[in-house]
């Protein structure tokens, strides 16, 4: 169990999570990226990419 980088509330990460996976903080809704699995590390997810098309 890690803490949210924004509000420090506990955030659960699925046991089968992979690097790059996004999890949400249930308290502040921040989107967090699994930056590393060993040791487990969460960072604030980067801004979404934007593109034109369709």
């Amino acid at each position: 169990m890690l803490n949210c980088t924004e509000c420090e509330s506990p955030v659960s990460v699925p046991a089968d999570a992979v690097e790059g996976e996004i999890v949400a903080c249930d308290v502040c809704s921040a989107e967090l990226e699994v930056a590393c699995l060993e040791p487990l590390e969460l960072i604030l997810a980067p801004e979404l990419s934007e593109d034109w098309g369709e």
Binding site: V18, E19, G20, E21, I22, V23, A24, E31, A45, L48, S49, E50, D51, W52, G53, E54
Partner: peptide, 29 residues
């Protein structure tokens, strides 16, 4: 949201294939 279950499972499948998932919003329709 990026935490949408389809996005999450597709992201995992991309990672398993050796890629780095990139989440996008588009200005088109």
């Amino acid at each position: 949201p990026r935490t949408d279950p389809v996005a999450r499972l597709l992201g995992r499948a991309i990672s398993r294939e050796g890629g780095r998932p990139r989440f996008i919003r588009k200005t088109g329709t």
